[in-house]
Design a protein around this nucleic acid. Structure first.
Lengths: 336, 336
DNA sequence: CCTCACAATTGAAGCGTTTCATTCGGAAAA
DNA sequence: TTTTCCGAATGAAACGCTTCAATTGTGAGG
C-alpha cells in the first residue's frame, strides 16, 4: 500500500481513506490514488485489514452434507441475504462427519469470520456442548438449540407430517403407512407424530409405521418389498419420511399388479429434493423451504453481529408446505 | 497470545513455538503452555498469523453451480486431497453468474488464500482475460486454458460422446439421435463430435442431431415431443448431452406405444448426476468422475503452491466412463 | 575449575492495514 | 493585514502473530 501512496504522491492514510472513506478525500486525490492502484495492480491484504480492524466481512456456513440439495438451498438463501448486507459467504462441507464439522467450525473461528451459520448433523454434537464458540456469533439452521443458547431456524416437522397425511386423507385414502426411521432421528419422530395427529383427527383412517434403518433409496426399496409382501390393498396411501425413501419404494412397487402409483397407492415424500420433481413419476413432497431458512438464518446472524451478544436468541419456526405431484394426484396433476 | 505467555510464565516466542515447532520446546514447557491455552480458551488469530507468515493454509474453490452435483463432486475430491496436505478448502458458489464469479475470485485473492481452484462457466470469462490472478496460483477445472497459462483438469468430452454412441451401437441400435445444445457450449459440441465419430466407424448406423436450447429437463421434454411427433421407429437409440435432457425425454416418451424405454428406444445420458441412478428408470450415463477431477486439480494446485510460478502448467485430461443402467440395458441390468 | 557446545528460551522487529490526533493550507471574517 | 475555521492530508501507533539474532543455562571435555 505504501507503494501506491508513493506512486500517487500521497500519504499512507490517504490511500486507506480513498478505499474506506471516499468522502473524506478530495475528488482530485481520489482519482490519483485510484489510478495508482489500477496501475500497480494493488490488491488489499485482507489479513492485515481484519487484523487492524478486528472484524471481517465474511461469514461462514458449515453444512452437514453438500450432496443433499436441502443444504445447498440453505446455502443459497444465506448467500443471498449475506450479499444484501455487503458480506460474503464461504461454505465448508462436513460430509456427514462429526470430526470434519468440528474442524470446519474452528477453521472459521480462527479465520475470525464475522459469524457462523451451522447446519449440523442430527446428533449429539450441538446438544452436548453448551458453548460451541467463545465469541463468534453462531446461528443454527435446521436444529434447535437447547434453552436459547443460540438463535436458530427450524422447520416445523410435525406440521409437515400432518400435512402429508392430511393430503392423502383428503384424497380419500384410509389405510396409510408411514415409512421412516430410525426414530432416534428427531426429525423423523416428529414427522411421524404429525402424521399420527392427522389420522387421529379423521375417524376411520388407520396408520401403520413401517420402520426403516435409514432414509436412502435402498431403505425405500427394502420397505417396498415388505409392502409388496403384505399384499395388494393392504395400504392405499404412503407417507415417506424422505423423498429418497419414496422413490425407492415406488421403484419396487409401481407396475406390480395392485400397486399402481398413485391409483392403488398414493405416495408423498419429504424434503423436496431436486430430483423429486425430476423422477419419472414426479413425487409429491413436503418442501422445507431451504432457501428461506437460509435467508432467515443469515438475517438472524446479521442481527447478532450488529447487535452484539445481548441480542435475544430467538428460534424461528418455518412451516413446510405440501407440493402435490403425480405420485399422489395422478393424471389430475399438471406440471407448471 | 501474550496472555497465554504470561499465564504460563514463558515468553511470547515460546508460545508460538509450541504451536508451530513443538520440537523446539522442552516437554515441560510445552505442557505448561498447552495448559494455559486450554484454560484461557485461546484461539489463534489466523489473520495475524498469515500476515506475519505471508502464507495461508487455506485454498478456495469457485464453483459455477452448486446445484449441479458434478460440481459438488469436484469440491469433494478437492477437499479430500487438500486435507491430505493439511490444507483446508472453502467453497464459493457463483450460481451461474459471471459477476458473482469475479467477486468470489477477488474475495479469495484479497484473503490471500494459498491457491484457487476455478470451475468456471463455459463462457468467455477465462478465455478473455489472459491473467486472472496476479500472484495467487490458479488451477482450472473442467475448462482448458489457452496456451498453458494455467494448469487444469478437463474431461475428454469427445471420448464420452464416442462411448455413449458406441454403447448403443453395440446393443444393435442403428438409428441414433443426439440430443443437445446450444452448440456454442463447447462441451456439447465435443460430445456430438465424439458420437459422430462412433457412427462414422460403423457403416449402416445413422445419427441425427436434434438441437435443444439448453440442457435441462424442460428442454428434454420439448425434444421428447419432437421425437414423438416423428413417429415410432424413427429412432431406436438416443444420446443425450445431459442426464436432465435424458430424463425429460424419457418422461415424455416412455409408456407411449412404440416408445418403450429401452425396448424401442435405448437412452444414454451424460454427467452421472446423482439423480440419474435414482429416477424410476435409472439412466445409463457417462460419468465425468468429478471427484477424481477435483482430486487431480487440487494436486496440481499443491504442486504449484510448493513449486512456485516456474512449475509447468500441465493440463490433465480425464477420460469419462460409461455407466450402463436400465435405460439402455433394460432387464439385463442388475443393480449393484 | 574453566571452556565449549548446544539446547532452550527470550524479546524485539516486522508483516500491511486502519485509526486518530496532528498538521497544513487556503478562504472567510475581523 | 491578522485571525479563525474547516476540510484535506499526514504519519505514528496499534492489531496479534512469526521469526531470528541474542541470551541463558547445562553438562561434557579438558
Amino acid at each position: 500500500m505504501s507503494d501506491v501512496a508513493r506512486h500517487a504522491g500521497v500519504a499512507l492514510g490517504t490511500v486507506s481513506n480513498t478505499m474506506n472513506n471516499p468522502d473524506k478525500v478530495s475528488e482530485a486525490t481520489r482519482r490519483k490514488v485510484q489510478a495508482a492502484i489500477a496501475e500497480l495492480g494493488f490488491i488489499r491484504n485482507d489479513a492485515a485489514r481484519s487484523l487492524a480492524t478486528g472484524t471481517s466481512s465474511t461469514i461462514g456456513i458449515v453444512l452437514a452434507d453438500l450432496s443433499n440439495s436441502f443444504f445447498v438451498d440453505i446455502a443459497r438463501g444465506a448467500d443471498a441475504t449475506a450479499r444484501q448486507h455487503g458480506m460474503n459467504l464461504i461454505i465448508a462441507n462436513s460430509d456427514v462427519d462429526l470430526a470434519k464439522q468440528s474442524m470446519n467450525i474452528s477453521l472459521f473461528e480462527e479465520s475470525r469470520v464475522a459469524g457462523v451459520l451451522l447446519a449440523p448433523l442430527d446428533t449429539a454434537y450441538v446438544r452436548g456442548s453448551a458453548t460451541l464458540l467463545r465469541s463468534t456469533p453462531l446461528v443454527l439452521v435446521n436444529f434447535a438449540a437447547e434453552s436459547g443458547h443460540y438463535a436458530g431456524v427450524v422447520a416445523d416437522e410435525e406440521h409437515g407430517g400432518y400435512e402429508a397425511a392430511q393430503h392423502l386423507i383428503g384424497l380419500g385414502r384410509t389405510r396409510l403407512a408411514f415409512l421412516g426411521g430410525p426414530l432416534l432421528l428427531t426429525a423423523v419422530a416428529q414427522r411421524l407424530e404429525g402424521a399420527r395427529a392427522a389420522v387421529a383427527a379423521n375417524p376411520g383412517v388407520t396408520l401403520e409405521h413401517i420402520e426403516t434403518r435409514g432414509l436412502n433409496i435402498p431403505h425405500g426399496r427394502h420397505a417396498g418389498q415388505d409392502i409388496l409382501a403384505r399384499g395388494a390393498g393392504t395400504f392405499d396411501g404412503l407417507v415417506a419420511a424422505s423423498d429418497l425413501l419414496a422413490v425407492g419404494a415406488i421403484q419396487i412397487l409401481d407396475g406390480k399388479p395392485g400397486f399402481d402409483v398413485p391409483t392403488d397407492l398414493a405416495v408423498v415424500g419429504y424434503d423436496n429434493n431436486h430430483f423429486a420433481s425430476e423422477s419419472a413419476i414426479p413425487v409429491s413432497t413436503i418442501s422445507q423451504h431451504g432457501e428461506e431458512m437460509g435467508r432467515v438464518a443469515a438475517q438472524l446472524l446479521m442481527n447478532e453481529i450488529q447487535g452484539g451478544p445481548t441480542t435475544i436468541k430467538q428460534t424461528v419456526v418455518i412451516k413446510p408446505d405440501l407440493i402435490p405431484r403425480r405420485s399422489s394426484l395422478g393424471d389430475a396433476w399438471r406440471r407448471d
